[in-house]
Write a protein that binds this DNA or RNA. Structure first.
Lengths: 143, 143
DNA sequence: ACCTCCATGTCAGGTTCCTTACATCGCAAT
DNA sequence: ATTGCGATGTAAGGAACCTGACATGGAGGT
């Protein structure tokens, strides 16, 4: 049979690395009261200020409904604000970072970048480039 | 500033590929009534027949509590069985695949392998090897 | 024998995320 | 104008996962 060991399969490895990265980041993010999901939304919010919730959902790869859960936690803590009513001639309610959100995001960014550096510590610059390229091609195969 | 685009960061890419892989697999697994989590437990169960629930939890990288949720779904559908009482001189209750579980796992395996093949379709054999090696080194950096 | 430590199983509660479903609003084609 | 259509917002319920806490059984040191 051609049944190879589960642990050597790419899918398993990708999942495992992603999970380890997530766990490691989340562990330290918890110190400033953020989850990985919240961090992702804050980042999307910085990249797309004033975007509607549906757009943030697309950027963070979750459904609008899931994003609502995360967003309500964020607004409840004053890290993000949703316009109470759509602007004239539109339906979408723009979401924005508050000052508190921006400053907390900066802290979170440092934590996640540090974790990422730890993950790629054993790789040379060229190898990191290579890895990124291979991952992009894997992603392309899954549409 | 040295702030690079979020979308080019390794952590982001890994997460994205893992999520795409999971989504693609789950979408097709749903056709046979399995979630990715259930598939993972069935696989662990095949690799370690008679293992206690705590061991399965370690193998699938979730907590014992989470595994209980998944396992109860599995036993409820007759795909796995938990020994009603610990064997003499032990406390752990061995878990095993049923025949139904084994045959459903075979179907699931085919689905997941096919998805994985699609993901790595754009990669040569050498490149797939390379990717696996780089991912293993990333994983090693996160302990 | 006793007692501490560790692993296992279990319960409670909460968070994140999903599917399904529905109401509404803007936009464009008719 | 009206009629669909697509995108948005919202709600309800369930699945998967977590932390925290607790009870119990085995193993090893004292």
């Amino acid at each position: 049979m051609c049944q190879e060991d589960v642990r050597d399969r790419i899918g398993y490895l990708v999942k495992q690395v992603a999970q380890a990265f997530r766990s490691a980041s989340e562990e330290r993010l918890r110190g400033i009261g953020l989850s990985m999901a919240q961090y992702a939304v804050l980042t999307a919010l910085r990249d797309a200020p004033g975007a509607p919730a549906a757009e943030l959902a697309r950027r963070t790869f979750v459904t609008r409904q899931s994003l609502r859960d995360v967003l309500s936690g964020l607004t409840g803590r004053g890290l993000a604000s949703v316009a109470p009513e759509p602007p004239a001639g539109g339906r979408a309610q723009p979401v924005n970072l508050t000052d508190a959100g921006r400053s907390l995001l900066a802290e979170a960014e440092a934590i996640v970048l540090e974790t990422e550096a730890r993950m790629t510590a054993g790789l040379s610059g060229d190898e990191a480039e290579q890895l990124a390229g291979l991952l992009r091609r894997c992603r392309a195969g899954l549409d």
